[in-house]
Design a protein around this nucleic acid. Structure first.
Lengths: 147, 147
DNA sequence: TGTCATTGTAACGACTACTGTTACGACTGG
DNA sequence: CCAGTCGTAACAGTAGTCGTTACAATGACA
């Protein structure tokens, strides 16, 4: 169970699932089932299907239905960055402004929004730049090298 | 009310509170009450006291009790970066690994943890670097310039 | 010494997000 | 037709944040 302090593991799970599909395909298989992926991730198949559904909308994965169905990559592992996955599954920014509008008659309340927005934009750019550096091919390479 | 998709507004509120105290002190006042700060932030005084309590533990603010009590800065605005605040109030990293340990008998399940950790470490460094660029003096300057 | 404004903190309900699970309809290869 | 898998709804459990009420503790000041 736990160990974390409350952060998002969705990016980890999504990268795990796609990398698993990629390795499975590289070994000659056609499709991977959510059941198989869930066994590797150690979770429920529905969790995998939900997540891969979002990745399909983003054009990173695809699925077949009916008998002998399952999941395939929509792109090569080398053409999928962690940024692609992040954008597919993370709806909003890391930091947010106030929930309730601060007092506009106060100088600070009036100007803090734009000031923080500028900083947060820079943070997002830096974060995305870091995630864009790594492709799933890189991730798989690291995994196989460590084995 | 809202508008956000579920992100942390704690850094925004904390920066708002400290900046407000700094401007208030610059205008000649001794201490700022949580009531006054809450009016500018548009929230409840207890929310401010809770947050400033964490900032006090980190050595960024200080408080006086009793009658005529309130809050003061423990450092000059120029000596407080957004990274200082972030570290004082954000308990964990942005991204987390799996909640449940993935299947260690699977190559991917075994190696994905270290591989993603390396990436996440880079993300944290980039994020912290961005936040360290801005001091509350910068924030206040932007606020006053825009007014 | 007494008053009283303010902090410190516990407690609670409301809201949101993610996770795990069950259930079942939709689809399709054989 | 049938069996296997996806697609998705529904629900409970966990966790974090926020707003709110309540009240004890503190300490400046009259």
């Amino acid at each position: 169970m736990e160990s974390d302090v409350s952060a998002n593991s969705r990016l980890t799970i999504a990268a795990h699932a796609l990398t698993w599909i990629g390795l499975y395909q590289r070994r000659g298989h056609e499709v991977a089932t959510s059941e198989q992926i869930a066994t590797s991730v150690n979770t429920n198949p529905v969790v995998i299907r939900r997540l891969l559904g979002e990745l399909r909308k983003a054009g990173l994965a695809d699925s077949r239905r009916g008998a002998g169905a399952g999941w395939i990559l929509a792109r090569d592992l080398a053409a999928i960055t962690l940024l692609d996955i992040y954008q597919a599954i993370e709806p909003g920014p890391v930091f947010a402004l106030h929930r309730a509008t601060p007092n506009p008659e106060c100088v600070v309340g009036h100007g803090i929004g734009p000031a923080m927005t500028a900083v947060y934009d820079g943070v997002e750019v830096a974060l995305r730049g870091e995630l864009a550096k790594t492709t799933l091919k890189d991730v798989l390479r690291d995994i196989l090298q460590a084995a």
